[in-house]
Simulated assay, not measured.
Amino acid sequence: MNIRTQLELEDHFTDSEKEIARYILTNGKDVVKDSISTLAEKTYTSPATIVRLTKKIGLEGYNDFRIRYSAELEKLSLSDNEIDVNFPFTKESSYEEIMNNLILLSHQTLEHTKSLLDEKVLQKVVKMMKKARIIDLYGTENSLLAAALFQNKMTRIGKNVDMRSLDGSQTFLASASAPDHLAIVISYSGETENVIRWVKILKSKHTPLIAITSLGDNQLSRYADIIISTDTREKLFHKIAPFSSILSIEYILSVIYCCYFQEDYDGHLDHKISFDKMSDKRPAHLLKDEND
């Protein structure tokens, strides 16, 4: 898990450690320029408390934190013309600015996500999908919306894809899994308690597992056979909405669908058209006119 995510989670932090974490998150690059005594003074804490916090998130001390956090911020940094994924508009923004910023945000998110995709990894994913008797999707809240769209597309070309919306049902789904299934697990943080419970069950069932998660180390990635990274510029909590993360996940799933579709382009297209005609409730004469 990256440093920023750990600071946001505040897992087992004392009140003083929470104050330090929130100050670091708010002040970004400026923090890494500060000495430990300066940071202690600014957060009304002590150097010893800062050291304890850095060790609590798996670092060796404050100097290690400055080096690693600086590198992390560089990787996630925005260029001058990029939209802030967490706050793409302000309370002063006009409707026109909101519309324009969201278009730019979408474009930039897709470009960032594309830069993280690897053709060889996609080839492995498609091979696993073709081999699997059933593909099971796992996720929580917003990620399930993207998963549902993927399931709908895959079902229309004849691939058996299963997903459940309730946490308890997903536990049952994992418990019923097998080596001839394929699990696609979606979690932006990769640290959600329910998600980790499911992947542990899936590993006990020897089910191949693809993780779609944020860039960097997290619990989910440690259980995955294949990791696909999302755009990771979005914060967990301090944001208006998950604009970037959901768009990134939807794009990844759409790319996976298209790559799978292409493996049997004509067959999948015939199956989809046949499925759509069979499920379309419009009068037959309208369908005939559409196809003429």
Rank of each mutant, 00 (worst) to 15 (best):
V255E: 15
F275P: 02
S279C: 12
D264H: 06
D280F: 05
D270A: 06
E263L: 09
M278D: 07
P242Y: 11
L269D: 03
G267Q: 05
D280V: 10
L269K: 01
E263D: 14
S248M: 08
S248K: 02
S245C: 07
S254W: 13
I273P: 01
Y260F: 15
S245R: 03
G267A: 06
S279M: 12
Q262S: 15
Y251I: 05
A241Y: 02
P242L: 10
I249T: 14
H271I: 06
C259A: 14
K277W: 08
I249P: 01
S244V: 01
F275H: 06
D276E: 07
R282H: 12
E263W: 13
L269E: 01
E250R: 05
F243L: 03
K281Q: 14
I252Q: 11
Y265M: 04
R282W: 06
K277M: 07
Y260S: 05
S244W: 04
I252T: 14
D276K: 06
Y260A: 08
S279P: 07
I240Y: 04
Q262C: 03
S279F: 13
H268L: 00
K272P: 02
D280A: 11
I246D: 08
D266I: 13
G267D: 05
F261L: 15
L253D: 15
Q262D: 15
Y265G: 01
S248T: 02
I249W: 05
S279D: 12
Y251N: 04
V255G: 08
S245F: 01
D264Q: 06
G267Y: 04
P242M: 08
H271P: 00
